[in-house]
């Protein structure tokens, strides 16, 4: 599990959801300035993961070994991408300049990623659509002649999948509400289907 947070300095950080002290999920923590603080004992972590304050010992400079474990995090097209293998960069598709993308919504489907992916490809988003690009973590659809919708596919576990959608193009702003509703229908359609092996 992951904890995602953003300090006042801006960029999103993705960390293992576990305080190195006593294993408390850091996603339950709270942000103060440019630091994430664990809710259990208030330990404070700088954006690079280093622990900088232990309230039980106000005079102590925390040792370098106390450091939250982080994953790469890239914000692109209004979506945050990571790589759980940690070695490599976050695998977002190359869609040219990061401009003009508007959020549609995030939504979770109680089905495996493969089934969600297949359903997205054939779903009716309200105008003739075509697959413009596809990689294991995202699908780019052309919708009508004016719009492009990017759907990032997040396999949560063997039978749950997150879908994160953004849109750009003329009329994209006006289309967001309708596209968000259509994604609800998409979810209902997928979950009504029997699970495919």
């Amino acid at each position: 599990m992951l904890a995602m947070w953003r300090g006042e300095d801006g960029p999103v950080r993705i960390w293992e959801d576990r305080c190195p002290h006593r294993g408390m999920r850091l996603s339950f923590g709270f942000v103060r300035g440019d630091a994430l603080r664990c809710i259990y004992h208030g330990w404070s972590y700088r954006t690079d993961g280093q622990c900088i304050e232990i309230p039980a010992h106000p005079e102590l400079t925390p040792p370098k070994t106390i450091c939250a474990s982080s994953y790469p995090a890239e914000s692109r097209y209004g979506i945050v991408w990571t790589n759980l293998e940690r070695g490599g960069p976050a695998p977002f598709p190359d869609l040219g300049p990061d401009e003009g993308w508007l959020p549609v919504r995030s939504l979770y489907v109680n089905r495996p990623a493969g089934q969600v992916e297949a359903a997205v490809e054939s779903f009716d988003f309200g105008a003739p659509s075509s697959i413009r690009l596809k990689n294991p973590s995202a699908i780019l659809l052309g919708i009508g002649s004016q719009m492009e919708m990017l759907l990032a596919i997040q396999p949560v576990n063997a039978d749950r999948t997150g879908l994160h959608a953004v849109v750009r193009g003329e009329n994209a702003s006006a289309a967001r509400a309708d596209l968000a509703r259509r994604m609800q229908h998409l979810r209902a359609e997928i979950e009504a289907e029997r699970e495919k092996k």
Binding site: R105, L107, R176, A177, A180, R181, Q184
Partner: peptide, 10 residues
């Protein structure tokens, strides 16, 4: 959640 998503968009 669906309702609040629509509210956010609005």
């Amino acid at each position: 959640e669906d309702h609040m998503t629509a509210r956010e968009i609005a």
